[in-house]
């Protein structure tokens, strides 16, 4: 793992400029430009908030208020996670020209997908913090934010490497992935409160590393406490394992990429 990270650090200049390019290119030509980084999560938030406060009023968890803020704490990091994975799946195929025609470190591409989405996440964060302050929810525990963020980063990188290399060989994954991410979303306590769950459902949720990451975010930002330490540590261990497996698989398939893309 150290070697892999060292490798990525060697390419940091390249990664840095590709992330910058990704961000610049993404919204070029659109009217709102960079504001889409803020507007996107806001619109998503609005959608869920409308559904649960106007349509499915009874379904909404009563233990967390204001609900929309709770929702926001989960949706923002989830968007980073799911967008990264979805993008990573296609990134090697889209960048086929680079891999086939230029001597180019392929692993840079999924990493760029994850990092550019992380930048969007970080850009959305001030809005969330603004609302948290506005509602008087923000406490000093928010300083612990880097912890779940780091765990999520490692986990996402690992999955991105895994998915991107595999998609080159099995294009089916790209289609399958949107459904998997959809199910994963509902199996992660984002629109509902983990504390409300019990029995079998809770057991299932506990097996999902993203659960612990989300709970950590919600506790740190929304509830002003951090008690889910054990869960986050477990998630961190899983994240490191996933990263290692992803990097290993990517390494094993690396030589085939230029031919199969």
């Amino acid at each position: 793992m150290i070697a892999q990270i060292a490798q990525l650090l060697r390419y940091r200049l390249l990664i840095q400029s590709l992330v910058a390019r990704e961000l610049k290119a993404r919204y070029r030509g659109s009217v709102l430009g960079f504001f889409w980084s803020f507007v996107n999560p806001l619109l998503l938030l609005l959608t869920y908030w409308l559904v649960f406060s106007r349509v499915l009023v009874g379904m909404r968890p009563q233990t967390v208020t204001p609900y929309f803020l709770f929702l926001f704490c989960g949706i923002l990091p989830w968007t980073w996670f799911s967008a990264s994975i979805a993008q990573a799946a296609g990134v090697l195929i889209a960048g086929g020209n680079l891999i086939k025609k230029v001597l180019f470190p392929a692993e840079v591409l999924p990493v760029v997908a994850v990092l550019s989405n992380m930048v969007h996440f970080l850009l959305g964060l001030p809005i969330l913090l603004f609302f948290l302050i506005y509602k008087g929810k923000l406490t000093l525990t928010a300083l612990l934010l880097p912890l779940p963020l780091l765990v999520q980063l490692v986990l996402t990188l690992g999955l991105a490497l895994f998915v991107s290399a595999l998609t080159v060989h099995f294009r089916d994954i790209q289609d399958l992935l949107s459904h998997i991410l959809q199910v994963w979303f509902f199996l992660t306590p984002i629109i509902y409160f983990y504390g409300d769950m019990s029995g079998k459902i809770r057991t299932v949720l506990r097996l999902n590393p993203m659960t612990h990451v989300m709970v950590a975010y919600q506790e740190i930002l929304f509830q002003g406490r951090f008690e889910h330490i054990g869960g986050l540590v477990a998630a961190a261990v899983v994240a490191v394992i996933v990263f290692m497996v992803g990097a290993l698989l990517f390494d094993r398939l690396r030589d085939t990429l230029a031919e199969e893309v």
Partner: peptide
């Protein structure tokens, strides 16, 4: 091998 491989059209 391919000139301009890796250029991004938008920037």
């Amino acid at each position: 091998i391919e000139l301009g491989a890796g250029f991004h059209p938008e920037i």
